[in-house]
Design a protein around this nucleic acid. Structure first.
Length: 427
RNA sequence: GGAGGAGUGGCCGAGCGGUUUAAGGCGGCGGUCUUGAAAACCGUUGUGCUGCAAGGUACCGGGGGUUCGAAUCCCUCCUCCUCCGCCA
């Protein structure tokens, strides 16, 4: 959520920044108009209320004097004022609600370093880490290898749940567990506190995290719509401190969670229909940081390097791309995607997304801190929040199976994972 | 699911229609004392909105109502606690 005061104080900067994200000028003008309406109606209601408070003080004196006739007369004379306040309050609340509703549909402002662009083709490739292996045979797709080795069954998944579900079995199930464990241990070593959050959250939690109202319809909800199945553990982690006033010395706060994620994939019909790449349910280890505003850009680099080092430990080649304005996620000011090499398609595919949401989520869920320096002023500020995957477990299985496949159809297991999986080879 | 009880400032806790501009304590900050620190003592200390400012205004779990006036009375929702029932 943007600060509505910025709209009135720096309208041109906001217009310029949001135009980079293809927000129409007319939308922003309407927003500014709403902010002004809200301010004027609030001022009116407050000045009426000030009159009422004065009158109320006089009333108190009158009540003490015990003059019943004067009391009755004064009471009657306040009826008009009372009605005027009621009306002004109503107007003011209408304008406040309208402004909030509009603000909820506006994304975060892109950072100056984010490249302009309409879609992913204009993302900026930052660097490559690791070299794709050369195969002396034609590499197979993970689902062919996996099904042949009895690690996964899409047929069984479809029996009970339909398309985009999988049943992992034997080494497949164990590999998912081993990867999750390894990633969580890595995250702990990087200083993130492990959290096991609720997987069902209320809609206000979704809104705080920036998912609602924009992405209503992309998640699974219970029939009574009381709960939403989390589309990512970013949602519960972003709500851990909602309403809190933190002290600066508590920051940064770093959390990690290993949870299933549930997504409808509404707009993705026909894409990635085979394999583990795009399922309605997948597991992910998430990293989440709360920092002061001056540290958040450094924290974003830290997130990327933490997620990247897990790929490096697994010996998987990847590249880092900086998302362009058109590909940037709703709540983010800047996002780096980590893309892992997939031999079967001879391309890099997203396996992690690391974003700095600045104060966007913190403003929605009211997470503030009190700065230590210049305690005399003691003005509270919103924290910055950041999230990144480390990593998407399903896609990591894809990368691992494909990059470590052998000519005989077996899969070699990278050294770091052997003690978690209990074997150095799946055959 | 049924019956009770409770939610007050960063934290604990008093208040139960009009000096509440929310007592008191803890914590924080400043000071006195001290070689320094601790202890003790003195002072100070909520958040948001609005305004150039002075100021104004709201906030006692959320929302609504009664009243000239609500932390205080009523309704409703949420959360926590106790007891009963059911249950992995």
């Amino acid at each position: 959520m943007l600060d509505h005061r910025l709209l009135l104080e720096h309208p041109d900067e906001i217009k310029h920044a949001l135009q980079r994200r293809s927000i129409a000028i007319s939308t922003i003008d309407a927003l500014i108009e709403s902010a002004e309406l809200r301010r004027r109606s609030l001022q009116k209601a407050e000045s009426l209320r000030a009159q009422m408070n004065e009158a109320s003080d006089r009333m108190k004196a009158l009540a003490a004097s015990g003059d019943q006739a004067a009391m009755t007369q004064a009471r009657d004379s306040l009826k008009d004022l009372k009605n005027a306040i009621k009306e002004a309050d109503f107007q003011s609340q209408e304008h406040e609600t309208a402004l909030q509703k509009e603000l909820l549909t506006i994304p975060n402002i892109p950072h100056a370093s984010v490249p302009d662009g309409h879609d992913e083709s204009q993302n900026r490739i930052e660097r490559h880490i690791g070299t794709p292996r050369t195969f002396e045979f034609e590499p197979k797709a993970h689902f062919d290898i996996g099904e042949a080795l009895g690690m996964m069954s899409f047929e069984q998944g479809a029996k009970m749940s339909g398309a985009r579900f999988v049943v992992l079995r034997h080494w497949g199930a164990r590999l998912e567990r081993a990867l999750g464990q390894f990633m969580l241990d890595s995250a702990s070593n990087f200083g993130y506190t492990e959290i096991a959050p609720p997987l069902l959250v209320r809609s206000d939690a979704m809104q705080n995290a920036g998912q609602y109202p924009k992405f209503i319809g992309e998640s699974f909800e219970t029939l009574d719509r009381e709960y939403t199945l989390i589309p990512t553990s970013e949602v519960p982690l972003a709500n851990l401190h909602s309403g809190d006033l933190l002290s600066e010395d508590q920051l940064p706060l770093r959390y990690t969670a290993y949870t299933p994620c549930f997504r409808r994939e509404a707009g993705a019909a026909g894409r990635d229909t085979r394999g583990l790449i795009r399922l309605h349910q997948f597991s992910k280890v998430e990293l989440f940081s709360y920092t002061t505003p001056d540290k958040s850009m450094d924290e974003l680099e830290r997130l990327v390097s933490n997620a990247g080092s897990i790929l490096e430990d697994l010996g998987l080649p990847y590249r880092v791309v900086s998302l362009c304005t058109g590909d940037l996620s709703f709540t983010s000011t800047k996002t780096y995607d980590l893309e892992v090499w997939l031999p079967s398609v001879k391309a890099y595919r997203e396996i992690s997304s690391c974003s700095n949401c600045t104060d966007y989520q913190a403003r929605r869920s009211s997470i503030r801190y009190r700065p230590l320096a210049d305690a005399s002023k003691s003005k509270t500020q919103f924290v910055h929040s950041l999230n990144g995957s480390a990593l998407a477990v399903g896609r990591t299985m894809v990368a691992l199976i494909e990059n470590y496949q052998q000519a005989d159809g077996s899969i070699q297991i990278p050294d770091v994972l052997v003690k978690y999986l209990g074997t150095d080879r799946i055959a």
